[in-house]
Design a binder for these strands. Structure first.
Lengths: 223, 223
DNA sequence: ATATCGCATATTGGATCCAATATCTGGAGT
DNA sequence: ACTCCAGATATTGGATCCAATATGCGATAT
């Protein structure tokens, strides 16, 4: 079996429902689909040139993730968050992510730290608000990856998915971007110093700050 | 519209896929389906006297919850946990649940506390291992409910779903039951004294204890 | 005897069709 | 004008059918 073939595990090629699921998930998280917007099975099926069956499976998975809400015979709509719900999710993040990074720091490699620094710098230097969200998540994910805490990471990923659009809104408004850059650097430096507790504390502060800033803007908007 | 009719919101009557989903979820969590056991769509469809379509939706939702694992064209199997994975989930619980109870305590009503005490006593007095798992979860859920932290509760529910079978195993073995009863009472009394920090500390201790006990037995089993 | 191939069977993924429900529209009656 | 109802239309939920893939088994060649 020593063949020089670029082999692909064909059992892992995506099914139609997986493709639709990922596309819809990204569109919702990125805010390309507005909150409350109905997801018409037929329309989506036509867009992906498939039948409604994979679309329905995708939608039911999205519902399980809390990204859409369906009512029987009425279809699914993109689900939004009240300020309280967003705040609660930030609270959960502020609880979990510091612990993840605490356990990640001792396991981080030099390579991983370099990647993180790269994301951090790209984030700071980027002037394109569209990429901020991605770079922000790349940075966080890179720092957390070494922990190997699969389940924690799943939970955090879902939490971030749900508040991603609020996060980006918060980065764009006021001094959000500048502040995030500064705080990211602080987190990174703590990791580079291998100071797990400091990294955890700064992560907690970073998330709590984002929450506060977000809430100010939300109440400001609704006022 | 002042009719004396026991009205039912018909839009919330369960769809076939919801019924199948709930039934499978319960069967998996309760351990009625063994880890690794394949879920044949046709068999399940026949059991519920329906077609495979709702079954497939149910299975994809279960997969999203991490309760089954599917491989393309090979179907779904009940997913199990390694000792490390179980330990990680207990760690997450030990992180979140104390915080939930801390925020729940100030909001608990006398009524809620009475219900919790009832669950606690029923748990202690029960000699039927089959009901321990349910009463255990009822007790925890009752204490957490007042917090109104919907998202936190969702996360914890999923975490408990995943480790439920290990939890029950741990209760049955050795002094698990006796110890859990004692610790539950400690948590409850802290709540009744409205001592949120103490309740949180005891909850953390309870969960960490369960984890340790579980790991001992697991390594013992595999040794 | 063993490995391999090819076919039969089982099972899943997806398409199409039908049924159940919701929503919209237009008209009748007041 | 306004309300209410009936039918038309749109949409979802589910059943049935077909295609793609995996699995099991026996025949065959070495």
């Amino acid at each position: 079996m020593g063949m020089k073939l670029k082999s692909v595990d064909i059992s892992k090629t995506a099914s139609a429902s997986a493709i639709v699921f990922n596309a819809l998930r990204k569109a919702i998280v990125d805010g390309d689909l507005e909150v409350g917007q109905p997801l018409r099975q037929d329309d989506i099926a036509q867009m992906f040139n498939t039948s409604r069956i994979p679309v329905r499976e995708a939608i039911s998975r999205l519902e399980e993730q809390g990204l859409v809400k369906t009512q029987r015979y009425r279809g699914a709509v993109v689900s939004g968050l009240s300020a309280e719900e967003a705040a609660e999710i930030f609270d959960l993040r502020a609880l979990i992510e510091p612990e993840i990074i605490r356990r990640s720091v001792p396991l981080m490699t030099e390579k991983g730290l370099r990647r993180a620094r790269r994301f951090c710098e790209d984030f700071s230097n980027s002037n394109d608000p569209m990429t901020w969200g991605d770079l922000n998540r790349d940075f966080h994910s890179e720092l957390y990856a070494a922990s190997r805490l699969k389940y924690h990471l799943d939970v955090v990923d879902n939490a971030m998915d749900r508040v991603d659009r609020y996060l980006r809104a918060q980065l764009v408004l006021s001094d959000g971007m500048e502040r995030a850059s500064r705080e990211h650097l602080g987190m990174l430096e703590a990791c580079e110093k291998r100071d797990a507790d400091l990294a955890a504390a700064r992560t907690a502060e970073h998330i709590r700050g984002a929450k506060e800033s977000l809430l100010e803007h939300l109440t400001e908007l609704s006022a």
